[in-house]
Design a binder for these strands. Sequence first.
DNA 1: CCTCCTCGTGGAATCGATTACACGGAGGAT
DNA 2: ATCCTCCGTGTAATCGATTCCACGAGGAGG
Lengths: 347, 347
Amino acid sequence: MASIKDVAAEAGVSVATVSRVLNGHPSVSEDARRRVSAAVERLGYRPNAVARSLRTDQTRTLGLVISDVMNPYFTELARSVEEEARALGYSVIIGNADERPDLQDHHVTTLLDRRIDGLLVSPTDGGSPGMLGAARAGTPMVFVDRWIPGVDVPVVRSDGRDAVRDLVAHLYGLGHRRLAIIAGPAATTTGRERVDAFRAALGAYGLDLPDAYTGQGDFQADSGRRVTEGFLDLAEPPEAVFAADNLMALGALDAVRARGLRVPDDIALAAFDDIPWFVHTDPPVTAIAQPTRELGRAAVRALIDRIEGRPGESVTLPARLVVRRSCGEPASPTPPQSPSPVRRSTP
Amino acid sequence: MASIKDVAAEAGVSVATVSRVLNGHPSVSEDARRRVSAAVERLGYRPNAVARSLRTDQTRTLGLVISDVMNPYFTELARSVEEEARALGYSVIIGNADERPDLQDHHVTTLLDRRIDGLLVSPTDGGSPGMLGAARAGTPMVFVDRWIPGVDVPVVRSDGRDAVRDLVAHLYGLGHRRLAIIAGPAATTTGRERVDAFRAALGAYGLDLPDAYTGQGDFQADSGRRVTEGFLDLAEPPEAVFAADNLMALGALDAVRARGLRVPDDIALAAFDDIPWFVHTDPPVTAIAQPTRELGRAAVRALIDRIEGRPGESVTLPARLVVRRSCGEPASPTPPQSPSPVRRSTP
DNA sequence: CCTCCTCGTGGAATCGATTACACGGAGGAT
DNA sequence: ATCCTCCGTGTAATCGATTCCACGAGGAGG
């Protein structure tokens, strides 16, 4: 592969001049510029990004450590992150932690070894040693979706409190009183917050959330299945189940179906995180949608702000309820009987 | 960040010795080894992968350029590729081409600039200039899923011919005679092959595939919707539609539903590529499943073979039909009336 | 005509690793 | 005792870029 020396020789100038042409430095004669461009063209020369990075101490690369790529929510997040980064002249290396702290740490260290300019993380747990170390060492970093309290890093996320309230209103309006939740891991902020928001909303309706109706999941389909089976085995099963992410909702759907029961007739189901497939499931699933693209974009911008020495601010965007059919008959044209307004969308 | 020099100073040895310890070189005294290890520990030193790559001319990184990350098939492929690569000591950088040749080229050049050791591609089109250039320049490369005829690069893919034959047998057995296909882009091998296989299988039953029943899609949901609408507008619409990928099947499902029609009562539907969601759609979709994990693994192994100077062989794995309910009532316990055996799976 | 700037250019140091080569000392063979 | 080997170690070149500094030419101003 041709190097800058070859180009210099071919153009009859020094490597310094070639470098200046490549980087658009002003003080190069028109003549030299043309000769270098021609040589670059002839040799099909492309600068070696590795060498450049070593010298300049920047890779123009961002690391993204994601909890689970197979989760469509994170896939979409990754995609929007890459898009925005590309628009701003950065590449992205994605690491999939698969909800495993050890894998998360593996990716963080690998990324750091590669000297990425900044790190975007949606932490799997309360903070693995490698990640905390990176934050402490001053690596430009931004948390996205999930975060770790007490660590001084900007957070880009969405707030589901209002949407959860809307959901509970919706369920209440449909006559459901025994409401259960499949929670995410307590080690994650999203895991805790969604339970808190749900319990608070329930409280507003004079309902409470017994332990028996709080199932512990891990954001994976299997756990949703397991927890739902537990709910169905109860002497008094819940009338509605709220899954704290889309994969666990899928597992819940399976469990209900495996018993020969129907959603929503036998049990209502709703999920956090809306995904394209929820329109096509049987029945279409009522879900809380995050502004995923905007989240990805905002996270990249915050991170690049940090990298370039600007403050880099935290962003919180509202999520919203998307009503479909999995909680009961869609609201008829007559005024809804739910106490608070609920936004609807067509399936 | 501490460099090898700092470690050398801290341990009271030369950088050469530190490097030797780091790389497990045999001729280092036990004493020196201990001192270096201690210094590494104290300083929290991690070797700079950028500098190492520059010197050794290898990055231990693979590039993966994928047609569309939002397609669950490719997400799973990417995941298995990363897993296998990690097991073999490599990292993976994923580029999402979004079915756009220009984006594909962008990623190929970026990856090459980064001096990745090898490239895994599922080409979007007949061969963008950058990609062909890379192949010609001798970059270790392997095609996965899709490939470009005439380019001398190993291909790891799955063969759907038998499965398509099984599918046609299944449809025929269910009484369907007017069969249509939503094809993928003719520029892709998978786009062409699936149509060919379908037409050949139809021929075996004395059926043919009129132009009106061959819709041109682009592997995206929207095109599936559009083509299906065209089918439904026909004076004599098809009785069954075979979508050449899962996203277009989704679009087809939408289009059918938007007309107030039902699958499979009004029209049967099947898809190439099976994904977890097909179990949960309304109705569960009959699909042709590829051994995606094995494909990813085989592709990585073939690529690393190439990188390390071994031949790197092409691999073709069979796909198989997974029957669900979208083509008609599931086969009753009575012997199936289809002429050839069809493997079934529980939904 | 001399001095001083400006501008374009090249030489060489540098980033952080790896590794060929040289060197000194210990130990074995003669 | 002498010579040869082998072993552990250090010095320095190298990878391919960027960039500081110096230098010469040419123009402007006195």
